[in-house]
Design a protein around this nucleic acid. Sequence first.
DNA 1: TAACTATATGAGTATATGTTCATACACTAT
DNA 2: ATAGTGTATGAACATATACTCATATAGTTA
Lengths: 126, 126
Amino acid sequence: MRIKKARQILRSFADDTRLRIINLLSKQELNVTELHKILGSSQSNISKHLARLRLTGVVGDFRKGFNVYYHIYEPENRAHKKLITAIIAGLSELKIFKKDIVKLNVIKKLEKARIKGKKRKENEYV
Amino acid sequence: MRIKKARQILRSFADDTRLRIINLLSKQELNVTELHKILGSSQSNISKHLARLRLTGVVGDFRKGFNVYYHIYEPENRAHKKLITAIIAGLSELKIFKKDIVKLNVIKKLEKARIKGKKRKENEYV
DNA sequence: TAACTATATGAGTATATGTTCATACACTAT
DNA sequence: ATAGTGTATGAACATATACTCATATAGTTA
């Protein structure tokens, strides 16, 4: 591995917002709006952090309907993967992470409720 | 662990010069001049990077005669130690690291030769 | 004490970074 | 096609960073 790549990866992790994004994505894939709601920061800001993580190869993305979903990317390069995995493993027990996971669950529940409501509404027309 | 501390530790690693310092110190303790000679950067710059690593708790230092020696510090906090150890483990196979180790050995040999020469010179007065 | 060696630090500069605001772009649904 | 939803990006700003040069400080040796 080149030192430049190692530095880029480490820099990717060296920010509160990105650390929290990485933690959340290590649990499950999420779209920009969900991350925006959980983290409280502006949509613009979240999007830029995601772009940076994507360019570094830490996360990948794909579109699903309206939304762009992000997930932790598995690098082909063995050394890159090793470094990323090692850092994530070393980051356990961050207190704020637990709070974010709680928020994540709240958001997901609200989404489910919203979808159910929509379906009921749609059914009214049947 | 607090996210601030995690960020500080990760930032400490997110720089080429500091990465190389950490790699060298993970092999053996070294003083400022030795690091300065191996890495080629200015003494002032090396000293500042070491100060930063010291403040973050990644390295420790002690004086021995003329010199201040630095070494990888073992943090008391288990989570801190886990993170630092994980990153160092993940950083294996960095190409430039091997070159630095070669330089390290050269410097150490030159030091030994210099000391021998000094002793011989001193003996001439006997 | 004075000269010397090793290390640390302040000033100054160029560059990078994180953030917000506004707006452009991509896609969907009516 | 047009309105609406979700995402990305450019401009602007404040702050942080890495570096060099010069100088101060700490400790050693003659």
